[in-house]
Design a binder for these strands. Sequence first.
DNA 1: TATAAAAGATATGTACACATATTAAATTGT
DNA 2: ACAATTTAATATGTGTACATATCTTTTATA
Lengths: 148, 148
Amino acid sequence: MQARKMPGHLIRRMNQISSQVFAMRMQGAGHDLTPVQFAALDAIVAEPGIDQAGVAARIAYDRATIGGVIDRLEQKGFVSRTVSRKDRRAREVNATAAGQAAFIAILPTVIDLQSDIVRGLSESEQAQFLALAQKIIDQNSKENEAAD
Amino acid sequence: MQARKMPGHLIRRMNQISSQVFAMRMQGAGHDLTPVQFAALDAIVAEPGIDQAGVAARIAYDRATIGGVIDRLEQKGFVSRTVSRKDRRAREVNATAAGQAAFIAILPTVIDLQSDIVRGLSESEQAQFLALAQKIIDQNSKENEAAD
DNA sequence: TATAAAAGATATGTACACATATTAAATTGT
DNA sequence: ACAATTTAATATGTGTACATATCTTTTATA
């Protein structure tokens, strides 16, 4: 049995390829966000005032990691954090004007590069692949949180 | 367009799930190897005397990362490194007796946990998924190295 | 209400992942 | 043979990813 044929290994390779395509295309378009930073910004734009734990839950991140990701988004001037008045443990995160503008500018590039990742698959194969991936994720995240 | 439906995001989530299943099952079986360490050990057992760059190429790792991975395998007593007499820049890596024994002991667990990762898919869906994943990888690694 | 339990965030430590730079050794070209 | 290039490995720095511990604040409970 070769490790290279195992689901775990194939998934690792796909993730590697996906990250490389993302980095290359974003750099080519003059943007400077990692996949994780983009996903976090997406969540924050979609739900202004969300707290860090909410961002983590929304995109299935680790709580301990999200702080650093949002740190970097803050350094770039894309988001701001304020202590919540409802719950002083929580930090409410909002996209700044610059962050919203950046998101709008970057989104088309991100959407466009997605088809690069699955290039080599026909339209119907792409749909199949996405459906199967979603199924794997749904099955394995039942015990964590409800999907939406 | 929600980031959560994009191929890149789904692939990241699958990789996350895959890594978690691997860690949990390995720990449950009393083993202590990461997915990357296992894949490296697999490559070294399959090709004794391979150099570090060879290991990296064989499993599509980053050259700069593989040194640290092999460091950790060496600390566990699973592999040994010797300067090649043919090319004194290169380090020939070999599995020790303990490393080979560990590999044989661990392999069944790793094989077994693979079906956990794709649980939720039927047999035929699993085969479909693996074929599509392989296609994505082959397409995106054409410019790097030949597959085998 | 005092205490316990839970939750949001941060800090620490380990392990990738990769870009870039550096060092040493081998290879190539003239 | 010698300089230029390439290659193997290491070093450095940034960015995840996650377990665990700690701190603060909130909530639940006796």
